[in-house]
Amino acid sequence: MAENTRETFEPNIVAFLCNWCSYAGADLAGTSRIHYPSNVKVVRVMCTGRVNPLFVMNALQQGADGVLVSGCHPGDCHYMQGNYYARRRFTLMRRFLEYLGVEPARVRMSWVSASEGSKWKEVVEEVVEGVKAVGPMDQFKRRQLNW
């Protein structure tokens, strides 16, 4: 990544998507052939409630430049409440990471429903743009050590 300049920087973003809304919404973007940047790679979970905020820390440590957690709109959670729990956890984690000096643009959350294929594209674009603007994650990325 050392050769990356701000201009050519293509961020790597790990996204956690709930199976019922956001993952289905991302699938819908596919079926609708809506094109968007390839920077976001998805981990499918059943519900955003499953996403431990320490996953975010772990992703940033592993080298992700940004993390996105996306679930059902409030009130629409397939499991009734999972997205509400996630909202609390990530609100706190995001503020905390900012306090440590991690740009908030790296930790994003969105509500994308199963019918919002085009919103998924917009979310991806916005997250990618936001991370591009702050550059590669450098703060506590795990370095590959050559013994």
Binding site: N12, V14, V45, N58, A64
Partner: peptide, 12 residues
């Protein structure tokens, strides 16, 4: 899940 994060997190 953590191994998934590990491989997805690695930048090319």
């Amino acid at each position: 899940i953590l191994p998934q994060i590990e491989v997805l997190g690695v930048s090319d």
